[in-house]
Design a protein around this nucleic acid. Structure first.
Lengths: 194, 194, 194, 194
DNA sequence: CATGAATGAGGCTTCATTCAT
DNA sequence: GATGAATGAAGCCTCATTCAT
């Protein structure tokens, strides 16, 4: 059950994210957003405290979803690290595709948040990283992954590789998002060499 | 031999890049830049046409250097694709470390460029990608890399992984930039699995 | 019925015209205008797109009024050219007196308009001239005016003579504006010679 | 004999007048003038005290020439007022044609002069008017012109008619400047009516 | 004489936010 | 609850003029 209120907020967030992605946060006016939706400025300020709050909510929404997902995956019982990694990469890629404009804004506009908001984001980011590291470590412990693997560096590599999708992935491109995930998973597990 | 003029321009670019990185392009005033350097507004506008021109030059400088590097590496004779890949990844990582603030700006602020400038950047980006793809293809042709490798996706994975460094690498961190490059290289070539 | 909006716009136009007349368009600041009226800068820009728009509207207002008037006079039925000329000269003189500051700006500041705006003005000017010429031609055709009269040159002479009023006419001067019109009319029709 | 100095000054005045006419005094930069001539800013300021001084000199040059001319014409012995008027109109028209850009600037830009400069110009203008009035009065006294003629109003009419030429006269137009003068002279003396 | 790099005050404009209705 | 007219602080940029060389 979604209230009228929540619908309006979501509509504002989605529209804003699309505009922020296209033109940049600072180049989008409140009036651009309200015009696109067909509401008035006053109505906007009835639902949001400020322009920055849009940004904050875009960040919170995205990072919470992502952090929840990795935590869940990590805690699935009876799964090898390899299987978890597979799930993780595909989930991560899909998450970026599904929230494309939110993600783009997420990566580019955090300088426009207040310091507290930035600190909060960074904590969530660290948490995300922490769980990826844990999965890699599990693989090493299980003896599946090479013993000399550096879990943190590898995690950062994987996260980077996946995040970067937001820069180039297109729904009408050569590969579907799942295929991309599969290719990334294979690269990371087996490498390029024969 | 570097002229006085060029020195001033470089100083402005470096100072601007640092400020843009820290606060975001739109949150930095021309007066912030000139105050930091100790010059007057007029002096700045004697050397630059506009604030946007700073951004343009930051972009051109970085992308040109990167595109030159990958082209060179590709054309080194008597090198296997594996060796070229090694060079490329390390060069790329180092490039990001050495131009950290420029790169951060590069990835985050291009919405503030004019359409023509954006188009130019995209072309250079494509060129960069093209050469990475060629190196991967060489590896496949040489029989070194797996035959079923998708060169473009793999290239995008590698580029993403390396680019992402700008988000987390710190000179006083656990690993040096060369070590990071080595870890990435091994991951990409051999994978995580035993 | 005049809306609040239209009143504000008119007030801005009149105040601006007076200031432009006195100090020149380029020597008048937006803040001079708003201070004189007692409004804020923001309020001004809520009603006008730019400073140049003031100029454009001053031009459009004046020239439209003038062009309408001459067209009307030309089309009045059952009037000799001589009678029309009388009306025209007096109407023209009065128009300049009544819109003194607008007219002064009109004659002096068009270099500050955009090229398109200038072109538009010139077309309206040509239209004005066209109708004066037609009246003179009517007089020649009617056999009232000398057959060897050059309608265009004479029209330009009359228009110049009348326009020039903006340079010297004062309401507290020796002659009223109607008397000036009468003197001009007699000069043009009968000449100086006995 | 013209010194190098005077040549430079004249060149600057002519070039400036042309640019001022085309773009308006305030829209022309000192650098525009110096670039057109091929001199440096420093060199300009070696010859001129300020930008305003250009304007002042343009004004002085033109108005002095015109005032001298009308005074001379008035004082030619053994000439009827009618003959003087003929000379005057033609001289005035030619003066405007020959100094077109100077005259345009003269009529449009005096708001950019200092108050003292403006006062000086107005005095010279009054002097010019005074002599035209005297010629008309002479005609009335001689019994050539109608007794009820208002010399001042008629003078202002003639001056306006002639001055206005700067707005429309073109060297490649239908009539030469002398023909225009002749037409104006006839209109003023004999009128339009048969 | 001649240069041209350097100055810095000040103008036009934008836009997030408010609040009376 | 909803509106949208009004605000006003602040930023980018210009350009006449100077002066060390």
């Amino acid at each position: 059950m979604v209230s009228k209120q929540e619908e309006v907020v979501q509509l504002i967030l989605d529209t804003s994210a699309k505009l922020f992605e296209k033109y940049g946060y600072n180049n989008v006016r409140i009036s651009d957003i309200t015009r696109d939706i067909g509401m008035t400025t006053g109505f906007f300020y009835y639902h949001f405290r400020s322009k920055e709050q849009i940004l904050q909510m875009i960040y919170e929404n995205y990072i919470s979803g992502a952090a929840d997902a990795v935590r869940e995956i990590y805690h699935i019982p009876n799964l090898t690290a390899q299987e978890k990694l597979n799930l993780l990469i595909k989930r991560h890629c899909k998450g970026i595709r599904d929230n494309h404009s939110h993600v783009s804004v997420f990566f580019r506009e955090y300088r426009n948040l207040s310091e507290e908001a930035i600190k909060l984001i960074q904590e969530k980011n660290s948490e995300y990283l922490k769980y990826v590291v844990k999965i890699i470590e599990q693989g090493v412990d299980e003896g599946l992954f090479k013993a000399d693997v550096n879990p943190k560096m590898v995690s950062l590599a994987i996260i980077g590789m996946c995040n970067w999708i937001y820069q180039w992935f297109k729904d009408d491109g050569e590969k579907s998002i799942d295929e991309v995930g599969e290719i990334f998973y294979r690269l990371v597990t087996s490498g390029l060499l024969k």
